[in-house]
Nucleic acid binder design. Structure first.
Lengths: 348, 348
DNA sequence: CTTTATTCTGTTACCGATAACACTATTCAA
DNA sequence: TTGAATAGTGTTATCGGTAACAGAATAAAG
């Protein structure tokens, strides 16, 4: 008489949210029926549905999406990796993403890389292990490992803010080199000849680096060069601009003078502008200033900042849109140049 | 001869990331061994471990955490709900949260409620359905439904930024009523008697509402009242401050004058300050200004803003810390007043 | 050279859902 | 009236892992 060895163990803790099977029992239907009611797919008799819904409500049942996602291998989570949250640009991108995802029923999971490619790689791996519906990463430069994972996945991938001809999957951004060039042209046209540069670390922030090189190249074409430049390896911000201006000005060779400064972004530029106001340096009469981003704060200044507006909300929205559409079977463009726009403020 | 009806179906799509079982086969060990290698729990012979790790690397295997979390009912995801990302205060809170979570190996999943309790409730439900390790929500006011779900869950819950004596589980924040009161006292002490208020909608932003009531109450105790006030139902920001100042000033009864304005937060205050600079209104000689938050931009102004610093990074860090510690079996305090600090700038 | 303890690895039973198909009851056209 | 199409619901086999215990292999003890 062989008795099957029935080991009874397991008293796995409940999470207090109930299970499908509890609901099914209480409602006297099968689990599938409950599942159908919740997902509103397939039809369920409206009488049954109402009854099940009532039971669900009474029990305060909250479905377990881990199980759902595992079984169906579909998720409504979308991974988003950005370099930082302190630079208001990225929250604005996120707003665009969230806006589009919302209406499609998806949810962003955000990771912060702190401008560190190694951290980015580790985030990519962690986030992909949750099998998101898609992933959005910032910039087009990635570590070998991150790139490998992103290339292998079948989920849609969008690289944002920057452009490349050969994206991993899709990309939406703007040409930073061109943006830098455009500002250089603007300053040259305005008659500035002795131009300085103040920015955050150009290696850390690859896009800022591209803008700088576009800027410098264009000056060179005009027979000019960057008179003096200073890169600070700190998180960019208003404080950095305000505190580093004296240092930049001090670097100007004795006997020379600069008549304009280009900044890595608006935050730094605004900080510098505040320094100028505090020191009685008139803009643009004594010194012209030019930024990049088109932040609200720059445009609110008594003398609005001359800058280039990047379409951050739009880039975010579009990248999310592409992912959603891809998931719906469409085939959005691989490379999208969202463009930019020179804002001729009053500082240059 | 009864043949068991063996239905063979299923060709569920692979996700291209491999599975434990594939790794196990390739490495000639059991799935459990691979699982152990990855989770670094239990010990695995170092020879076996190295071999498995090599196979994992060669295959480019990325574990499926959905399955892992489902089986172990533990997650490294932490849900965080904030009202907005556009107000730099919240990204700063998030930085604090991310900072602490990182070192403990957790990951924040962020939801944006847009100051809408209904949306918050829906986010709470969606996010809890992923069975996060814990959840952080902003403010202490929630819809009936959100509160129910939060009370039922066994995961740690922290309400942040505001305080209440009876939190759902834990709370970390500051006393906004007191903060408003403190600023009122400061202005009164400084000799201001005709004080106006400009802010965003007080219903939308409950914390701002509490500050205002603390402010008003204290003025009343001093025998004063708010001379003129204006609430705009728009997302608060620098633009709002800059554009609404004229309207506020226009509301001052003819023949009267105000000598100070209290703002719902620094963004609005800075916008107003820019308006003043642009219009040649001197601060504080012609008009004193006082904000709340202690944003970098306010302190970088040529005339630094008088305001109250909220410890946003710290609040975020601490809330994450409490959750992590709770998960480790400790018992952090239920209510934590993170305090605030009056910054006596030069505008009041 | 056993016995016992210690390491390491495998087996089995789930976790809580969904996919795919099966089956029963209606409804409808002929 | 009857076979076929349509609706509504149930059954079974996973999804890709982990918990708990069992068992084998090795080391330590007597």
């Amino acid at each position: 008489m062989s008795e099957k060895k029935t080991v009874k163990r397991r008293t796995r803790r409940s999470q207090g949210a109930g299970t499908l099977s509890e609901v099914a029992q209480a409602a006297q239907v099968s689990e599938m029926t409950v599942s159908r009611v919740l997902r509103r797919k397939d039809k369920v008799a409206s009488k049954t549905r109402d009854h099940v819904l009532k039971v669900i409500k009474d029990l305060g049942y909250v479905p377990n999406r881990l199980a759902g996602a595992l079984a169906s291998s579909t998720s409504n989570q979308l991974a988003v990796i950005i370099p930082s949250l302190r630079n208001i640009v990225f929250p604005e991108v996120l707003s665009g993403i969230a806006d589009r995802l919302d209406e499609a029923g998806y949810q962003a999971v955000i990771g912060i890389s702190e401008y560190d490619l190694q951290r980015e790689a580790s985030l990519v791996e962690t986030m992909m292990s949750w099998r998101p519906a898609g992933i959005i990463v910032t910039n087009t430069q990635h570590s070998e490992e991150a790139a490998r994972i992103l290339r292998v996945t079948k989920s849609p991938v969008v690289e944002i803010m920057d452009l490349t001809e050969d994206p991993i999957d899709m990309c939406v951004g703007l040409d930073h080199h061109k943006a830098g060039a455009e500002m250089a042209r603007h300053l040259v046209t305005k008659g500035y000849r002795n131009i300085g540069y103040l920015g955050c670390d150009l290696i850390t922030d690859a896009a800022a680096g591209k803008r700088y090189s576009g800027f410098r190249d264009t000056l060179q074409e005009a027979g000019l060069s960057v008179a003096v430049s200073l890169s600070i390896d700190e998180p960019s911000g208003i404080g950095l601009g305000r505190n580093s201006m004296p240092e930049l000005l001090a670097k100007v060779p004795a006997g020379q003078k600069i008549d304009a400064v280009y900044f890595s972004n608006d935050a730094v530029a605004v900080g510098a502008q505040m320094y100028c106001m505090a020191e009685g340096i008139r803009t643009p009469e004594d010194l012209a200033l030019a930024g990049f981003s088109g932040l609200e704060v720059g445009q609110a200044m008594p003398v609005p900042l001359t800058t280039i507006r990047s379409k951050r909300f739009h880039v975010g929205w579009l990248s999310a849109d592409y992912i959603v559409r891809r998931l719906q079977g469409e085939d959005p463009p691989r490379v999208t140049d969202a463009g930019f726009e020179l804002i001729e403020g009053a500082t240059a």
